[in-house]
Amino acid sequence: MSDAAPSPADIRVTDVARSFGDVHAVRSITFEARPGEVTGLVGPNGSGKTTLLLMLATLLVPDRGEIRVGGLDPVTRPAEVRRLLGWMPDVLGSWPNLTVRRSLELTARLYDLPRPAAAARAAELISLVDLGELADRPTRVLSRGQKQRLSLARALVHDPRVLLLDEPASGLDPGARVALRVLLRRLAAEGRTILVSSHVLSELDELADRAVFLEAGSTVSEERVAAARSTERGWRIRALDATALRRALVAAGVDEARIASDPQGLVVPIAGEADAAGLLASLVTAGVEVVSFAPAVGDLEHTFLDLSADGEGAR
C-alpha cells in the first residue's frame, strides 16, 4: 500500500451532481473515505448510491463537482484509477458459459496479469470466497449468493487499494455474511479503503467504521445525522421476571402505555444513551434481574429511519 499518497483520503467526493435527462440522480454529494476504514453508504432506494458508485468506478462522468480516487480524477485518468480500484456492481453479471475459474482467470488477464499468475490468483480467490466446489462449473448454475461471491472475487482480482461494493451482502446466507464481514474487516485492516452501500443496516452497523447518509441525491449534513442519532428510540429490555420488570419500569417513571412487548422482551422508548444508562441503573437498584438491555434497532437503522421520517415530514 502506498502510504506516501498525497491525500490521506483515498476517496474524496466534493459537491458531485449527475442527472439523466430530467432525473437528478445525484444532486450534491460530498464525503471522504479513508484507508483502513470501511465507509458505509446508507440511503433509501433512489437516493443516488449506485449512480455515485458508477461515477467513482470510472463509468460515468459527473455533471458537476470533483471526484478523486487515490488523488486521481477518474474522468481524465481512468486507466490509472482502474488499476487501484475494485468495483462490485449491484447487477450480478457473469459470463454464463464460462466456469468460475475461467471467469476469474480471464478477468485477471484483463488486468495484465501474466497467464500463470492469473491462474494462481484465480485459485486463491476461489478459496477466499469459498467457491471451491463450483470452481469448474459454468457460472450459470450459481445461485444468487454464489454469484455475489464470484462478483466479489472478481472485484479483488488485481488486489485493489480501493474497493467499491454495491449491496455486497444481499442474497448471502448468514454464514456467508459473517464471512464477508470478516473478509472486509481484514481487507480494511490491510490499509485498504472500502466503500460499501447496503440496505442491510444491521449488517453495516457491525461492519462500517463510518457512515455517509444519502437522501434524494444529497449527503445528509452531520448536524442532522447527529440530531437523528439522539432522538428517542426503542430499547429492548429482558429480565428473568417480566412482571417485575414492567412494575419497576413504571416505578422508574416510564409511561406504561408506551411499553411494548415482543417475544424477546419489553421495548421502551428512551431518548439518548445517558437516559438509557440512568434507567438501567434504577432497574438494577430496584433489584430487577436484567439479562439484556440494548437498542431494539441498530444505530444506522435508527438514524436511517429517523432521517427518512424527517424527510417525509419536510416534504
Partner: peptide, 17 residues
C-alpha cells in the same frame, strides 16, 4: 448483449480500453 447481461461494465472497469 453484454450490457443486458451486466458483464459489459465489469469488463470496462478493467484495464482493457
Amino acid at each position: 448483449g453484454d450490457r443486458e447481461n451486466g458483464t459489459l461494465a465489469t469488463t470496462q472497469v478493467t484495464l482493457v480500453t
